[in-house]
């Protein structure tokens, strides 16, 4: 089953898969909600899952799918190489993580490896996950503050939305800069988006 909100992407992946005698696409979904509805009907051996989709999004879909069907084998196929995004997907239960610029053969190898029970990651994504572990992870609150900053909110506006003082927000921002190695809020937003910590 292919889960992606872009029909061209689904068509491209389907065309690659259907060149193989031992593989077939049994269902397509354009959202996480649709994927969860279709899964029990088709019980696919492998789910290829995008992360950035309207609605509940890829990571939550993976978590829900694995919760309902623990044997579901899910391979993330995404444009996002960020370590935080990848780690969330793997912790949610994804067995593979590939980038959309992956070569055709690697995609097919991954499908077969994961079907056989293995896990498959792009090595650079895996290294990125390991590299950032030495840093302090942002707390949920800090991620919330930074997401609001990324949406253009001032410290005062963030404080009002979170029902805290402006000084508290400034304190969060200071810690966020230190943890991300950022020089200012724009830099912090850029780093966090690139690593998949926040979504823009």
């Amino acid at each position: 089953m292919i889960v992606d909100d872009h029909p061209f992407l689904r068509e491209g992946v389907k065309a690659v898969i259907e060149t193989q005698e031992d593989l077939a696409v049994v269902a397509e979904a354009e959202s996480g909600e649709q994927a969860l509805a279709l899964y029990p009907t088709h019980l696919p051996d492998i789910v290829l899952m995008d992360l950035q989709m309207p609605g509940i999004g890829g990571v939550d879909t993976i978590a829900a799918m694995r919760s309902n069907w623990p044997h579901a084998r899910i391979v993330v196929l995404t444009t996002y190489s960020g370590d935080a995004q990848a780690l969330r997907a793997l912790r949610a239960g994804a067995a593979g993580y590939l980038l959309k610029n992956t070569l055709r053969k690697e995609l097919l190898d991954t499908i077969r490896s994961v079907h056989a029970g293995g896990k498959h990651l792009n090595a650079q994504v895996a290294s990125s996950i390991a590299f950032h572990v030495i840093e302090d992870a942002l707390t949920e609150r800090e991620i919330g503050v930074l997401s609001l900053a990324a949406s253009g909110n001032s410290n005062k506006q963030i404080a009002a939305k979170l029902a805290v003082s402006e000084e508290t927000v400034k304190g969060h921002m200071k810690l966020i800069f230190a943890k991300l190695g950022a020089s200012d809020r724009t830099h912090a937003v850029t780093i966090a988006a690139k690593r998949g910590i926040i979504e823009l």
Binding site: S113, G118, K119, L121
Partner: peptide, 13 residues
């Protein structure tokens, strides 16, 4: 029996 595949590793590998 666990298998972890890491594809396209960078040098020095």
């Amino acid at each position: 029996g666990d298998v972890l595949t890491l594809s396209a590793p960078a040098r020095p590998i």
